[in-house]
Design a protein around this nucleic acid. Structure first.
Lengths: 339, 339
DNA sequence: GTGAAAGCGCTAACAT
DNA sequence: ATGTTAGCGCTTTCAC
């Protein structure tokens, strides 16, 4: 970078060999081609001069950067932050680095993906896709190695690592049924996202399996407390006699706490609530939230692992990795009181 | 990257000009050097062929990558995630990208920083430094543009963006004094980190200003609930008659909730607690936590802004940016009851 | 086993 | 206003 940069040529001069030999000696993969004694001499010279290889120059030559682009809706989000952690952990162990971008709006994703590719990333992890998302098809068509995480896209063109939403909803519904609840409603997420859509479908399927009719569904416009509160208000209004709510997300469940309070209802005394995700601190809220736990960190790890195998050329025909969630019972659900 | 990559030369051929002209036409900074009509022709050809510039090749040539390395202790941490968000936001607006690394152990930081430099980053943001951290001096000596965030390092060799810890503690102590508390203890963070050290000092200074003697101090080994609980146990044991605790961090405060419960004490009835940071969801825990709010996102923004001015050559002699925290009063603090 | 040379895709003098 | 040319620092043939 700066004028005084030590290059492979400086090392070559110091060691009294040709610079191509330095390259060979310093690269673990080609080191065997060079005499041991020479290799040591080169390494000594490199260390003495404080030589730092220029990864970009190497990438330009080899066409591989060991860089992975990671596009998230929001890095400070309690569900995406752990995903990023898992991704980073796995990439790190494989000698890769993450180029992280917040796609503050969904429309930017395609443009961001292209920019990252233009920056030379070897592959892309997208946590941002909507159920209908043309950018996935476009990227796949361009031959870019890509893996989706947390959210899937309808076409199935790109492999995805997700939680088993249907199972999650079944766990939630069965838990409530076991507590005696019959009038159960669903506080859904945005139907444009696979999680919102599939959890709603999962809820309805689970209710049918239990021989119950859904007491009502209201979908929030976003996965946040405010939208959750608004949707919960509607749900409470429309679904009379409701005794339990299965939310598509913990933040929505927290919003429902607020909506309940507004109506003078108490959780779990009057209405039981089940969340989804088990975000950090869900054991500390009041009441502690019963929820369906997803290991987001593990999801991130799996996504990185999957992408890496593709990047390294293995064309494993995995189209999805579906992780099993577990039920975490806390204080927001209780036995149905006889009225 | 892949064989079929479209380069500047393909565009040149399609537009019937020399490839250096294409470079000029496509680069906003040099576009004025080229005839308008030609520039348009080149742009059309580039668009038609789907040309994507190779940022790495450009970086190799110019010595600037528009990449910034960001090293954090933990990306899924509720305080560092928003910092990263702020950093990313500012970098994005300036056309930069973040290369994000989790330094799972402090010893790795130096090595990681060197690797990032070797990857060609234009600068480094470190959120990981300890109060005594030789790597800062080493990096500064190497001439690497670096900015610290959230935590400072003793020598002051590198500019830092931090919260005003002394002010934060004063706000906390004054709030408790106003509520009538006299026997106030401090639940400190690791003294090896500037936040732990300075908040403790700040607490003691604030108590002196208030004309009060500290009721005791216990430092946690880490910023997490378990360490907070353990330290709070010790504090409760040693400081008799304690009616309020100022914690160095929200997680420690939450740990103290647990320690209090173990002894059959209630917050805020028996002991008031003040946290620090105002992490997400602190309004939802039980009791809602009174705390000193730091805008971590803003901290991240400022850090990126500061680094960018340095990277772009402005040698502004800013040695620190200190952000003012604010007091957020909730339910974990109450008027001292007369016994 | 080592040296020579080409070239990855681009920018920036330097010519014209 | 445009073309020519020389690299940026590295890897990888190809010779010897």
């Amino acid at each position: 970078m700066k004028p005084g940069r030590i290059t492979i040529k400086d090392v070559a001069e110091a060691a009294g060999v040709h610079y191509s030999t330095v390259s060979r000696a310093l690269n673990p993969r080609t080191r065997s081609l060079v005499a041991d004694s020479l290799a040591e001499r080169v390494e000594a010279a490199a260390a003495r001069l404080g030589y730092r290889p220029d990864a970009m120059a190497a990438s330009l030559r080899t066409g591989r950067s060991r860089l992975i682009g990671v596009v998230l809706p929001d890095v400070s989000n309690l569900v995406f932050a752990p995903i990023l952690g898992g991704v980073e952990e796995t990439l790190d162990a494989a000698g890769y680095r993450a180029l992280v971008v917040e796609a503050r709006s969904p429309e930017r994703v395609a443009e961001i993906a292209r920019e990252l590719l233009s920056r030379g990333v070897d592959g892309l992890i997208l946590a941002t896709v909507a159920r209908d998302d043309a950018t996935v098809a476009a990227l796949v068509a361009e031959g870019a190695p890509i893996v989706l995480v947390n959210r899937t896209e309808r076409s199935g063109l790109a492999p995805a690592v997700v939680s088993d939403d249907a199972l999650g909803m079944r766990l939630a519904v069965e838990h409530l049924v076991r507590l005696g609840h019959l009038r159960i409603g669903h506080l859904g997420g945005p139907p444009s996202l696979s999680t919102g859509f599939l959890r709603r479908e999962g809820f309805e399927a689970a209710m049918r399996s239990a021989g119950l009719a859904s007491a009502g569904v209201a979908c929030a416009a976003a996965y946040d407390r405010e939208a959750g509160r608004a949707a919960a208000r509607m749900l409470l209004q429309s679904a009379s006699g409701l005794t339990a709510i299965v939310a598509a997300n913990d933040l929505l469940a927290l919003g429902a706490y607020g909506a309940l309070a507004e109506k003078g209802l108490r959780c779990p005394r009057d209405v039981s609530i089940v969340g989804h995700n088990d975000m950090p601190l869900m054991d500390m809220v009041d009441p502690p939230l019963t929820t369906v736990r997803i290991s987001h960190r593990e999801m991130g790890r799996e996504a990185a692992r999957l992408l890496l195998t593709r990047v390294e050329g293995v064309t494993a025909e995995v189209s999805a990795i579906v992780l099993a969630p577990t039920m975490i019972v806390r204080g927001s659900t209780a036995l149905l009181r006889r009225r």
